[in-house]
């Protein structure tokens, strides 16, 4: 019925086998290592091994605060997040109101577009 050493799951359009995936992953690691070994033996000193962050030289102790991560994304989605901030008021009356609103919508949908088969 179930073979523990063959953990494959057949999906509607294919098959998923984690063991095969792990084998392929290890193999690709080996290949990557082989390519790495073929690389330049001597690194050049100087600029190449220094760390830069947004064009500025970093001292190695730089830490980006959580609120600053994904700034570009948040800036691009400004309008959406403004709407979301307005919706998430934190007032308990609104929580109950949203619940009742969805309830009323569902009732109307089921009553007029048929809940029965």
């Amino acid at each position: 019925m179930m073979n523990p050493f063959n953990p494959s799951i057949s999906t509607p359009s294919g098959i998923w086998n984690p063991l095969v995936w792990i084998l392929v992953f290890l193999l690709s690691l080996l290949i990557a290592y082989a390519i790495y070994l073929k690389g330049e033996k001597q690194r050049k000193k100087g600029m190449q091994e220094e760390i830069f962050l947004s064009g500025n030289k970093a001292d190695g102790n730089t830490h980006i605060k959580a609120s600053n991560i994904g700034w570009g994304y948040l800036e691009a989605m400004k309008g959406y997040y403004k709407l979301m901030r307005d919706i998430h008021t934190g007032i308990i009356n609104d929580y109950v109101g949203w619940f009742l609103g969805v309830l009323a919508t569902m009732l109307l949908i089921f009553l007029f577009w048929g809940g029965a088969q």
């Binding site: 979301m84 901030r85 998430h88 008021t89 934190g90 007032i91 308990i92 009356n93």
Partner: peptide, 10 residues
């Protein structure tokens, strides 16, 4: 007041 009891939001 419910409008003031909302230190948790967003």
């Amino acid at each position: 007041d419910t409008r003031k009891v909302r230190r948790l939001r967003e």
